[in-house]
Computed example of a mutant assay.
Amino acid sequence: MRIIRFILPLLFSSLASAAPTEIDWLDLLPQEDYQAMLDMPEIGHDSGDETPGDFTAGMRQRDESLPDVMYSRRVVDSYDGQAVQIGGYPVPLETSETGAYTLFFLVPYAGACIHVPPPPPNQIILVEYADGMRIDDIYVPLWVSGTLQVDQTSNELADASYRIVAQRVWPYDGE
């Protein structure tokens, strides 16, 4: 009986510490970037001549009239290696042979892949999800939980300052 009294609390404390911490996109901004975003004038999100669903150019364009914070790669190092949960919108990248997306960007607002300007790299997360999932609508938000890593990634579509190796991805339910 003594052993159970000793082991049970350890088991529950271990399970509690393994639960992901729910974070917000603003949590991923270093203080100097957060303040620069607050001080920035409003930016238009005109989609230009791109066709909806065309992800080939929108995230890679650089507008020299925008402040440097819009291209910031600065990160919050304390989140590196942490179990987190964050909500956002998918930008599909790679599928499995069954058509399930195993690699996608997660961004803080819908349509970020077709709007100019895109989010800064420190507001884009590359998600690796081995289980894969169907993404039929990029305007439907998702929850993603897994291990967050500080990892500068660059591909033909965009730059991202964070990566999540997702353990679970599911539709955002508003809670």
Rank of each mutant, 00 (worst) to 15 (best):
R2G: 15
I4E: 12
I4M: 10
F6S: 14
I7D: 02
L8F: 15
F12E: 03
F12K: 03
S13W: 10
S14D: 07
A16H: 05
S17A: 12
P20M: 07
L26K: 03
Q31S: 07
D33L: 01
D33Q: 08
D33I: 05
D33C: 04
Q35P: 00
Q35S: 05
Q35T: 14
L38N: 13
L38K: 15
D39F: 01
P41N: 07
E42H: 09
I43R: 10
G44W: 10
D46V: 11
D49Y: 08
P52Y: 06
G53A: 10
F55T: 09
F55V: 08
A57C: 08
R60E: 14
Q61V: 14
R62W: 08
R62Y: 14
D63R: 10
D63T: 13
E64H: 09
S65R: 12
L66R: 03
V69C: 04
S72L: 02
S72Q: 02
V75L: 00
V76G: 00
V76H: 00
A83C: 02
A83Q: 15
Q85A: 15
G87K: 11
P90F: 06
V91M: 06
E94D: 10
E94M: 08
E94Q: 10
E97Q: 14
G99I: 11
A100T: 09
A100H: 15
T102V: 15
T102F: 07
L103D: 13
L103A: 15
L103R: 15
F104V: 05
F105W: 11
L106V: 02
P108K: 00
P108R: 01
Y109P: 00
C113W: 05
C113V: 04
H115W: 05
H115A: 11
P117H: 03
P117F: 01
N122L: 00
I124E: 04
I124A: 11
I124W: 00
I124S: 04
E128S: 10
E128K: 13
G132W: 11
G132N: 11
M133L: 15
I135N: 12
I135V: 15
I135W: 10
D137Q: 09
Y139V: 07
Y139H: 15
V140W: 03
V140C: 06
L142V: 12
V144T: 04
S145T: 08
S145A: 11
L148R: 05
Q149W: 13
Q149Y: 12
V150W: 00
N155R: 03
A158P: 06
A166K: 02
Q167M: 10
Q167L: 12
Q167I: 05
W170L: 06
P171E: 12
P171W: 05
Y172T: 02
G174W: 02
